[in-house]
Amino acid sequence: MASAISPTGAVLAGRHGAGTLSLAAADPAGHAALATNWTAHERACADVGRDADRTGMCLAYPPEGFGATSERLVDGRIDPAALVTGEAGLGGLDAAFASLRRPEEHIEVLIRPGLAGAGVSAV
């Protein structure tokens, strides 16, 4: 269910077991509403006996934002290394995706094909 700033879409998604799509995540007001909307989604899920699942939450950003982000990466205003919180080899793909479903564990996991093991290592 899609929403912009009001939690209506997040509440309906919780009631019906659907994912959420925040269309205004790049807007300051929309970004500020994300936590409130997620809390409303969690309450709606609980009201019908469901667990809220962040893997079903998507944020939409306008294409022009990607260009600005690329420029910041190129000129050094954003350090991409600071975004990588773990690394895994090909044998750790399942563990990497599982850890990314738990945002308290990792933000980005870098996949290094030559890295041995089946887990995710902190960076």
Results as ranks from 00 to 15, higher is better:
113 P>I: 13
55 T>N: 06
43 R>G: 00
66 F>Q: 03
92 G>L: 06
107 I>P: 00
37 N>G: 14
17 G>A: 07
112 R>P: 00
42 E>D: 05
105 E>Q: 14
40 A>W: 02
100 L>M: 12
90 L>H: 07
121 S>F: 13
84 V>H: 02
121 S>G: 00
87 E>K: 08
41 H>E: 00
24 A>K: 00
98 A>V: 15
22 S>H: 14
16 H>I: 00
97 F>P: 10
111 I>Y: 11
90 L>A: 03
115 L>R: 15
98 A>I: 13
79 D>N: 11
37 N>D: 15
79 D>R: 12
16 H>P: 00
122 A>Q: 13
40 A>Y: 01
114 G>W: 14
1 M>F: 10
13 A>Q: 01
26 A>K: 02
52 A>S: 07
39 T>L: 01
25 A>H: 03
44 A>C: 07
94 D>M: 08
70 S>P: 00
52 A>H: 06
99 S>K: 13
30 G>N: 07
47 D>C: 01
8 T>A: 09
37 N>K: 06
116 A>Q: 10
7 P>H: 05
41 H>Q: 01
60 A>K: 04
7 P>C: 02
61 Y>S: 04
101 R>K: 14
41 H>Y: 03
39 T>K: 03
114 G>A: 15
25 A>W: 01
49 G>W: 13
67 G>F: 06
102 R>S: 09
86 G>R: 12
108 E>T: 14
53 D>I: 08
65 G>P: 06
111 I>S: 10
84 V>E: 05
1 M>P: 05
44 A>H: 01
88 A>V: 04
118 A>C: 03
41 H>D: 00
47 D>R: 06
108 E>S: 09
118 A>L: 09
47 D>I: 01
41 H>I: 00
121 S>Y: 03
99 S>W: 10
12 L>C: 07
21 L>E: 08
70 S>F: 15
112 R>D: 14
64 E>C: 04
89 G>K: 03
88 A>E: 02
36 T>S: 13
36 T>P: 02
28 P>A: 05
99 S>C: 14
36 T>N: 11
58 C>V: 08
119 G>E: 10
54 R>W: 12
18 A>K: 14
68 A>N: 07
103 P>Q: 09
55 T>G: 06
